[in-house]
């Protein structure tokens, strides 16, 4: 969108009482959604790869962490100034996320180096590798938490201002982690088939995601203000409903649920499970994207109208 179109769009938005937010998720703001998406996948994949001893999953998580970090920087108005977040560490959630990602990437590098470059640097189980393991774990927890809290701290957008948002983002991350393992298990088959464990795990986490999301929607509709209700309307029946129904529900829930059913019925192949993982991950992306785009600013007039009556 060129400068003139953006200006006209802004003027049009400023005239609306319930102004949609466009800074995050629109134009260059899309990088933020992509960054959150990849970082979420990276954290979940790292956790489950450690649990199931999947070195391919660890590498995938590391690479996705890098992609997430780069896209976060591309979102910033001034990417070259990212070091200021290091030099002037604050208690803001963005700072914590930056610290978490730095810890994760540094730790993962230390932990993965002896696994993928054996004999060249330090060995597995050495002090450096252990430090890497701990740092990556701490970073992973930081990133998982940061994403939801960044939205919860956004006072201007009541729809995101829900205490359930952090839990929802953690569960997305876990669901994404299982999805990544489905794909890596297809690319590099593990010694033991993980499908019988991953399939119910994916189903359970998906049920938690669906429950948290339903509770958040219910909370916005019943206890939320006008802006929160408009966001829900935009998500379910308005300007972003297409992304929600096609991307999140059809691609991210119905299709993988069918694959899961097929898998549970016995007709399972790693290729089919990889498709499940891919569809699930794409669904998560659209869930994050549509939730972000559905954000509507708190109307300035609310209190004033009340005062004048």
């Amino acid at each position: 969108m060129d400068a003139n179109a953006r200006y006209n769009q802004l003027i049009q938005d400023l005239r609306m009482e319930l102004r949609p937010q466009r800074e995050w998720g629109d134009g260059k703001g899309l990088y933020l959604v992509v960054g959150h998406f990849f970082n979420g996948l990276a954290c979940g994949a790292w956790l489950f790869s450690l649990l199931f001893g999947q070195t391919t999953g660890l590498l995938a998580a590391y690479l996705m962490g890098i992609i997430g970090g780069v896209t976060h920087l591309m979102f910033l108005g001034r990417p070259a100034r990212f070091w200021r977040m290091v030099r002037q560490q604050k208690t803001a959630w963005v700072s914590r996320g930056f610290l978490g990602l730095s810890l994760f990437l540094a730790g993962a590098t230390l932990y993965l180096a002896p696994i993928y470059l054996p004999g060249l640097l330090w060995s597995e189980g050495s002090l450096l590798s252990t430090i890497g393991y701990v740092a990556a774990m701490l970073g992973m927890i930081g990133i998982m938490g940061y994403m939801g809290f960044v939205y919860t701290a956004s006072k201007a957008v009541p729809f995101w201002n829900s205490p359930l948002h952090p839990a929802l983002y953690v569960s997305y991350s876990l669901r994404g982690g299982v999805a990544v393992l489905f794909v890596t298990s297809w690319l590099v088959p593990p010694a033991k088939d993980l499908t019988p464990i991953l399939l119910p795990l994916w189903g359970g986490i998906t049920a938690v995601v669906a429950l948290l999301f339903a509770l958040e929607i219910h909370g916005a509709l019943t206890g939320g203000n006008e802006a929160a209700r408009r966001s829900v309307h935009d998500l379910l029946a308005g300007r972003v409903s297409g992304y929600f129904y096609l991307g999140t529900l059809a691609l991210g829930l119905v299709l993988p649920a069918y694959f899961m059913y097929a898998g549970m019925s016995g007709a399972t192949t790693t290729g089919l499970m990889a498709l499940l993982g891919l569809a699930s991950a794409v669904g998560d992306f659209f869930m994050k994207f549509s939730t972000l785009r559905a954000g509507v600013f708190l109307p300035v007039w609310t209190h004033l109208s009340h005062q004048r009556r």
């Binding site: 995050w24 100034r81 803001a92």
Partner: peptide, 19 residues
């Protein structure tokens, strides 16, 4: 010092910040 992350725009309940 601003890095342009626009968190402040999402936090201002009065929508009085511009990028």
């Amino acid at each position: 010092v601003c890095v342009g992350c626009r968190s402040c725009m999402m936090a201002c309940p009065y929508s009085n910040r511009y990028f």
